[in-house]
Design a protein around this nucleic acid. Structure first.
Lengths: 153, 153
DNA sequence: TGTCCGAGTTGTACTCTGCAACCGGACGGT
DNA sequence: ACCGTCCGGTTGCAGAGTACAACTCGGACA
C-alpha cells in the first residue's frame, strides 16, 4: 500500500466509523446519549467544572450545554454548586448516581470493545492505540479549524 | 503498553474521535451532510443501488433514507430509475452534478486529512490504515448487534 | 456609579431520525 | 386466476440535538 493510498483509506475508514458511530449513538445506552456520556466523563476526569468550560472544550453552543446539563441534573446524575468566589458561576459535579451510571456505561462499552478486539495480537493493539492517540492529539488547540474528523462527518 | 490498557486507549480515542466528529458535523461542508456524503459515496462505489440497500448498509431507517434521497434528488445530485424487472424498485444513480459535488467534497476532506497526516512516516500510515480497515470490517454483517463504535459515543 | 463583560437561561427554528401507518407491486399456494 | 403475504417506498408524527439571538444577573474596572 502506498502512502497516498493509505491516507485515502484512513479518511474513508474514519468517516465510516463516524457514520456508524452516529447511527448507533444512543441505541446501545438509551439512558445516556453520546454527548451526555462525554460530559459526564469530562466531569469525572476534571473533578468538576463550569458549563462554559464544557462548551468550549467540545465546541458546543453554551445553550446546548445548558440544556444537556439541565437534563443531567433532572436525572440527578450531576449537581450544580454555586461558586462562592463568583456568583455567576455554577460548578458542576457528578453525583454518586452519576458516577455509578457512568461506570456502568463505560463498562458496557468496554465489553463491546474487548469483544471486537479480542482476536488482535497484543502488538497490533498497542500500535493501533498509539496511532489513534497521535491522530487525535494533533496540534490540538485549534479546534475551530479542525479538519479532524473528515468533516467529521 | 499492555494489551488491556491498549484496548482502553483505543476505546477512549475512538470515542473521542466520534465526539469531535459529531460536534463538527456539517460545519465544514454545509452543502453535504455526513449522511448525504456517505450515501453519495456509496452510490459512486456501487454504481447505483436501491434505497433499501442503503438503509440496511448504514443501519438507518428506511424513512430516513427516503427523505435523504428525496433531498438529494431535489438537489439534482442523484436520479431515480425505475427497475424494469421489479416495478416497486427505484435504482438510484449519481448525476453528473452529484459526481462533481462528491469529488469536490472528497478532495477538500482529503486535503484536511493530508495536512493532519503530513508528518507521519509512510509505514505508520499504512499500518494505521490497515488497523482501521480491520476494526471496521469486523464480523461485519451483524450490523444490528454491532457494538462497534463504542456506542458510538 | 455607570458601563462593559462574561455565565447561564430561554425562545425559536431547523435537521436528523425512528416508529407506525399506509400504498401499491410482486410472489406463492391453492 | 385469486387471495394472502411480503417487500420497497412514502408520509405523518414525535422527539432529540443544535445553533443563534435576545435576555438576565453578577462582577470588574474607571
Amino acid at each position: 500500500m502506498e502512502a497516498t493510498e493509505a491516507v485515502e483509506t484512513i479518511q474513508r475508514e474514519m468517516t465510516s466509523f463516524a457514520r456508524r458511530a452516529r447511527a448507533s449513538a444512543g441505541r446501545l445506552h438509551p439512558e445516556l446519549s453520546l454527548v451526555s456520556y462525554t460530559l459526564l466523563g469530562h466531569l469525572e476526569e476534571s473533578g468538576g467544572c463550569r458549563a462554559t468550560d464544557l462548551a468550549a472544550h467540545y465546541a458546543l453552543d453554551k445553550s446546548t450545554v445548558s440544556r444537556q446539563v439541565g437534563a443531567l441534573e433532572r436525572a440527578a446524575l450531576i449537581e450544580r454548586r454555586q461558586d462562592s468566589e463568583d456568583h455567576r458561576v455554577q460548578v458542576l459535579h457528578l453525583t454518586d448516581a452519576g458516577r455509578r451510571i457512568l461506570a456502568q456505561v463505560t463498562e458496557s462499552r468496554r465489553t463491546a470493545f474487548r469483544e471486537r478486539l479480542a482476536r488482535w495480537p497484543a502488538a497490533d493493539l498497542e500500535r493501533f492505540a498509539e496511532y489513534l492517540v497521535r491522530y487525535n492529539a494533533w496540534p490540538g488547540p485549534a479546534a475551530g479549524s479542525e479538519p479532524g474528523p473528515p468533516a467529521a462527518p
